[in-house]
C-alpha cells in the first residue's frame, strides 16, 4: 500500500508525427500521436513522454498543437522533451497541456536555465534529462560522464555530481539514459541507475536498454529507479504495458493495475 512505480512509454515525434515505427496491429494511423497516446493510456501507461526530434525550429508550432490535441483526450501526465531552450518554450508547452518538460542539452550549456525554470514554474514540472556514458576502465572504480548530442559529444562532467547539482538547482525529477545501453536491448545500466538514484532525493526515471520485461523489474529492484521508460518494447507490440505491469507486480513491486 503506497506509491506505485511508474511505466512511461516514450514516443519520438518529428514535425507532429510519431516516428521510429510504432506498430500496433489494430491502430489506424500509427503516426498519429493522439491515437498512439490513447492506446498507451488504455493499456495503463502511468505517464507518456514525447521527445521532439524535429530538426527545424520553424516546426515548433506543430508540436504545440500536438500537445494540445493529446492533452484534450488523454488524462494522464504528459512530458515533452527536446528543443526546450528558453523559459518561453516551457510556458508554451505547459499552457498547451504538458505537465512537465525535459531539459537536456540546454542544462549542460546553461545550468542557470534550470534554476530559472524551477523558480518560475515549480520543480514539479522540470525534468532534467541526463545522458551518461561509462568512462572508467576495467577494474577501475565506476565513473560516468555526461554526453550531449545523442551521446556524441563529451563534456567531462561527472554524472553523479551533475545530478546532485541539477537537483540543487531545482530539478524535480531526473530522466537518466545510459548511452552505453540505449538501443542495445540488454537491460539498464543498473549500477549507474542505482548510483544516481541513491545520490539524489528526487525521483529517477531509468532509460536505455530495455529488451525484455525482466529488465524493467531489475531497473526498480536493483537500479532503485522510481520509474522506467521504454520505447521499442512497447511500440512493436512485443509486450503491452499491462503485461509489463503484471510482471513487475508479480516481482513484488507496487504498481497501478
Amino acid at each position: 500500500m503506497g506509491l506505485a512505480k511508474r511505466i512511461i512509454p516514450c514516443l519520438d515525434v518529428d514535425n507532429g508525427r510519431v516516428v521510429k515505427g510504432v506498430q500496433f496491429v489494430d491502430i489506424r494511423d500509427a503516426g498519429d500521436p493522439v491515437e498512439v497516446a490513447r492506446r498507451y493510456d488504455e493499456q495503463g501507461a502511468d505517464e507518456i513522454t514525447f521527445l521532439d526530434i524535429t530538426a527545424s525550429s520553424d516546426d515548433r508550432e506543430t508540436m504545440v498543437h500536438m500537445v494540445e490535441d493529446v492533452a484534450s483526450q488523454v488524462f494522464i501526465p504528459l512530458t515533452v522533451g527536446g528543443g526546450i531552450r528558453k523559459v518561453e518554450d516551457i510556458r508554451v508547452m505547459l499552457n498547451a497541456g504538458a505537465d512537465k518538460v525535459g531539459i537536456n542539452t540546454a542544462a549542460v550549456f546553461n545550468p542557470e536555465f534550470v534554476k530559472e525554470a524551477a523558480e518560475k514554474f515549480g520543480s514539479q514540472c522540470i525534468v532534467v534529462a541526463i545522458d551518461a556514458k561509462k568512462v572508467s576502465g576495467e577494474g577501475e572504480e565506476n565513473r560516468w560522464e555526461i554526453f550531449t548530442h545523442g551521446g556524441r559529444k563529451e563534456t567531462g562532467i561527472d554524472a553523479i555530481e551533475w545530478a546532485i547539482k541539477m537537483v540543487d538547482y531545482g530539478a524535480g525529477e531526473i530522466l537518466l539514459t545510459s548511452m552505453d545501453r540505449d538501443g542495445t536491448k540488454i537491460g539498464f545500466d543498473l549500477e549507474l541507475t542505482r548510483a544516481i538514484s541513491e545520490a539524489v532525493n528526487v525521483p529517477v526515471i531509468a532509460s536505455g536498454g530495455v529488451g525484455e520485461l525482466q529488465h524493467m523489474v531489475e531497473g526498480v529492484t536493483e537500479g532503485k529507479a522510481d520509474a522506467v521508460l521504454a520505447a521499442s518494447i512497447f511500440h512493436f507490440g512485443e509486450h503491452t504495458i499491462e503485461e509489463a505491469k503484471r510482471k513487475m507486480a508479480s516481482a513484488g513491486i507496487e504498481m497501478r493495475l
Binding site: R6, S123, P203, D226, A227
Partner: peptide
C-alpha cells in the same frame, strides 16, 4: 528512502 516530491500514483 522516499523521494521528494511525492510523485506518481498513490
Amino acid at each position: 528512502k522516499l523521494k521528494i516530491p511525492h510523485m506518481g500514483w498513490n
